[in-house]
Design a binder for these strands. Structure first.
Lengths: 184, 184
DNA sequence: GGCGGCATGTAAACAGTTACATGATTCC
DNA sequence: GGAATCATGTAACTGTTTACATGCCGCC
């Protein structure tokens, strides 16, 4: 999966591993997290497979900043992946729900503490998403590009809407669940 | 993670790998999926680590059905895990959102087809959850057990409520997103 | 000079997925 | 007899996470 995320971003413009890490953290990372260690190793592998090429940045002679660029083969692989629609539900994994499922073994107070802490985190996450709203086009500086970033931004916005809906739903459910446990 | 799910179920009663597979598919699998291959190998590893013990079922001489039972060490490890509350948001991974994020490369019709198909799947999933509602206690036959299954069932119900809220949110978002793309 | 953030990487461990394999039982 | 489902497992691979490691730059 990470492979396609990297191809997706490199299809916008050439970037270093670190640039990719930041791009992911600010956008797709909200629904597909990646560690820098995985990004660097995956980029190396993709270069071996001919999906990207890399050059060392000349501007900066001290730091070995490697700039990656997507190849035609990379573009074609990205398009091919997008062409094959999902035919199943993406499996969801939520360790909090696993913990809650087996919470008969814990004291109600312990469960409440955990849920209330999660509530804070989800509240923060919601606020993070709400602050992304105004600026929907972080790539707007790319004037000469062949990419229509207005069109791209519509899809980015849709994933943001998902994040907002998800956090609101999560907060609602946490509030109801907390209330239910408190009344036990 | 799977380790703790297996411990959680074995804490209710001794079971075979296949029993565990079915229990997971019907409950925690909705928020933490596991393949049978992983279940069997993890059980073997847990036995080596002293978290469970196993015996071959005598009733069935043809089939080598191995019945696993949780040990005291296993119980203590399960409780210890539950004791350490999550301090971060569980990372979510949703490949549909990744695909949508980069859907500027696709035709609107392709995107719509994928979203509409996902809509069907989520509708089915919602109905699945709605049918679980009436029977909240699949373990009710265990009369002599030391586990208070009424108390357990309250937590199971909470995770089910999450599933219902999640699917409703997802369907809503899909409907809005589909409408937005159709009006482009 | 020390601290924090920038920037890049490797190694080892762990988790999860896919494919292969086998044999029993049940139903048609 | 054949197909589907029950039931158990191994092997190879891929993906993900944690830990280790290094050095630069700017700020106080």
């Amino acid at each position: 999966m990470l492979k396609y995320i990297l191809l997706g971003f490199l299809n916008y413009q050439p970037m270093t591993g670190y640039d990719l890490k930041r791009s992911i953290d600010n956008s797709t990372g909200h629904f597909w997290h990646a560690y820098h260690s995985q990004i660097y190793t995956t980029l190396r592998k993709m270069e071996q497979d001919g999906l990207v090429t890399s050059v060392i940045d000349d501007n900066d002679e001290k730091l070995e900043r490697r700039i990656y660029e997507i190849t035609e083969q990379g573009q074609s692989e990205l398009k091919q992946w997008l062409g094959k629609s999902l035919t199943q539900l993406p499996p969801s994994k939520d360790s909090l729900l696993v913990r809650l499922f087996f919470s008969g073994l814990r004291s109600p107070q312990e469960v409440l503490n955990e849920l209330k802490f999660q509530r804070q985190l989800h509240q923060q996450q919601l606020e993070t998403y709400q602050q992304i709203e105004p600026e929907a086009d972080p790539q707007s500086e790319l004037e000469g590009s062949s990419i229509d970033f207005d069109r791209e931004a519509k899809f980015w916005r849709m994933t943001l809407e998902f994040g907002l809906a998800y956090e609101k739903m999560y907060l609602n459910w946490l509030d109801e669940t907390i209330a239910r446990i408190e009344s036990l």
